[in-house]
Nucleic acid binder design. Structure first.
Lengths: 117, 117
DNA sequence: GTCATAATTACGTCCTTTGCTAAGTACGCA
DNA sequence: TGCGTACTTAGCAAAGGACGTAATTATGAC
């Protein structure tokens, strides 16, 4: 389990860490701010943020005593890219992509049948 | 770590299991077929498939002695849905979504531009 | 310098995961 | 009914993850 995608998925396999990432879509936040919604101790929350930082899903700056955290989107994009080959299995249920994938299936003939599950 | 999304990400946090899912995009395959590319023993590979089945990423049928496996796309779609709020952080680099998101950013509510290429 | 705040590190414990080997189950066929 | 193939279960050891408490570093205010 040493590759980047595996470590990314492992980091996302925790509801606390996903919730922290959700919070960060609203903007930069300190460790304490990110820890506040949870019932765990600050060291535990800090370790979750360290996991996110070490894998590369967030980065931390410095401002006085606080460590402002922000999202680093590259790995989430990697996850998105990994999902691509699977989209045709549920494309008809995806609002955002349905028209695009319908077009792809009808026209381009990129090597797969649109009537396969 | 009992919620579905956490168990899904945990199941995907293993290169063997992701590789098995990749293989299943080509169509149904038996346990032995899915295990063949890996250097591990058959019981270990079978256990990986059991993890995928228990979380709901694949399902197994029965055909003589074989257990044909197929992808169950619902959870991958859940992952896709979870990614949605993060797409705006890397949208300009996503081929598939760039047109849609450009439209969105220009002020449209949520309609899909149907006269797009 | 002294003190308070923000965050991290150290350490111990519990639980889960992953791999192996060996044994067991389910099915089709002669 | 007995045999081979396909797969699963059982049991064990090694490794990793998540939590808490206690101690430590880093910065700013006084």
């Amino acid at each position: 389990m040493t590759d980047t995608l595996s470590r990314t998925f492992a980091a996302l396999a925790d509801p606390t860490r996903r919730s922290m990432l959700d919070r960060l879509t609203l903007g930069v936040a300190s460790v304490s701010e990110l820890a506040a919604p949870f019932s765990m101790t600050l060291p535990s929350a800090s370790r979750h943020l360290k996991v996110l930082e070490e894998v590369g899903l967030i980065s931390k700056g410095r401002h006085a005593q606080t460590r402002p955290c922000r999202i680093e989107p590259a790995l989430l994009q990697d996850v998105d890219e990994w999902l691509k080959p699977f989209r045709r299995f549920y494309a008809q249920r995806l609002d955002m992509l349905s028209d695009y994938l319908d077009t792809l299936n009808q026209g381009e003939g990129h090597g797969f049948n649109s009537d396969r599950p």
